[in-house]
Amino acid sequence: MSTLFVDRRDIHLEHDAGALVVRDRGERLATVPLAPISRVVLRGSVTLAASVLGHLGERGIGVVVLSGRKGDATLFFGRPHNDARLRVEQCRRSLDDKFCLAYARSLVHDKLEQQCQWFNALRPRYPQARYPLTQAIEQLRQQQVRLPQARNLDSLRGQEGAAASGYFAGLRAVVPASLQFNERNRRPPRDPFNALLSLTYTLAHAETALALHGAGLDPCVGFYHQLQHSRESLACDLMEPLRPLADRLCLELVATQTLTADHFGHSAAGCLLGKAGRTRYYMAYEQHAPALRQAIREGVRSLARQVAPELPEPGTYEPPWLPTPHDSVAPDTAT
């Protein structure tokens, strides 16, 4: 299963016999069958009828709209699983402080473990950065062993913050100096690598929220990230151990010079990836996405088993769009 990216001015989408028709000022540019599509990402002045959204929803295809210069995401969910028992159990568990803390600890532990393993793998590849990478690993391990001491979510967030300081210091040592990456910053990102991280996190977060909704969970009711207006808190939860996978993609793109500083621009909205860079990015994202989607799928299933172990196997809730390990990715899905 693949993603259709539509990032072009004055595009109109129509549905015709199980396919999306892409038109530019009335001229038919392409016809994309919906069968292999699992999600659609729209950016720019794209128009479509409500009936098109209806056809996508019927097929369980989620729609992500990136609006404004910063690419803020709005989600249109496909049809969810109809068994509400899982959502009821989720809400009940969200009020259980003991469950929330235990689940949050496991998320942070898994994230720190993946960060350590990745930095270990980077040391032979970046011998000049071996010392800062080793220091970062030591800081991550120090916080990891202290996780059981956290007695509440605030304490756990403090430990996670201390680990993040060491992690980004290590990451800074391997990011090309031309990208001027000194620390993690956002809203808006002030340098190219932070802009790349923000875009990747936005897409990964959207995929996670769509997967949770399709599986019968409420993306807004979290355990580590508590209720907050206009936030998919549960998607934020599951994103924690996924972030190292997103970071790997970002580093790979700049290390191979698939993206360089020239692909980014600066404005009052911060540092943003330009149109030519986004075209390259979308293709690279799809090529690297299978590992990310596998991790999302495993995270959703694991959570469903913890939330409601007495309900049927979580695979029962798998929506039709959720990719399987055997799915292939279309070689070019950017328009």
Rank of each mutant, 00 (worst) to 15 (best):
H266S: 08
D247S: 06
P290R: 11
L48D: 00
R172A: 12
G68S: 09
H109M: 06
R93A: 07
R25N: 10
T258Y: 10
P80T: 06
P176G: 07
A289N: 12
H263F: 12
G315D: 10
K275N: 09
P309W: 05
C91N: 04
H81E: 01
G161N: 11
A30V: 13
L107D: 00
D218P: 03
A308F: 08
A163S: 01
R8C: 01
T47V: 04
D327P: 09
Y285N: 09
D10C: 01
P219Q: 13
T324W: 13
T31A: 08
L245C: 00
L203N: 00
N152E: 04
I11C: 02
Y131Q: 15
D110A: 06
H225G: 00
Q159I: 13
E113Y: 03
F77Y: 12
L86W: 15
P319E: 12
K111W: 06
V63E: 04
C236Y: 04
Q142A: 13
L311W: 12
R146E: 10
Q159S: 12
L322T: 09
P33Y: 09
S51W: 15
P244I: 02
A177F: 02
C250N: 00
A246Y: 05
L48V: 12
Q117R: 10
Q144F: 14
S38H: 05
Q117T: 07
A334K: 12
P124Y: 14
D262W: 11
Q90V: 13
V254Q: 07
K98Q: 13
F76A: 10
H266G: 10
R157M: 14
V65H: 10
E232Q: 03
V329K: 08
L197G: 13
G161D: 03
P188N: 09
A291N: 14
S230L: 15
G60L: 03
A104K: 01
Q228Y: 01
R79C: 10
R278N: 03
Y126T: 13
R190P: 05
L48F: 04
Q180D: 03
R297Q: 07
S328R: 13
N182T: 15
G18T: 14
E138S: 12
A173N: 08
G60P: 04
F264D: 03
R69W: 09
G274Q: 11
K275D: 08
A246T: 08
E138Q: 08
L322M: 15
F99Q: 04
T324L: 15
G214P: 04
G26H: 11
C91D: 13
E310H: 12
P148Q: 08
W321N: 07
N120C: 11
F119E: 02
G274N: 01
L179S: 00
R85W: 05
G62D: 15
P176T: 08
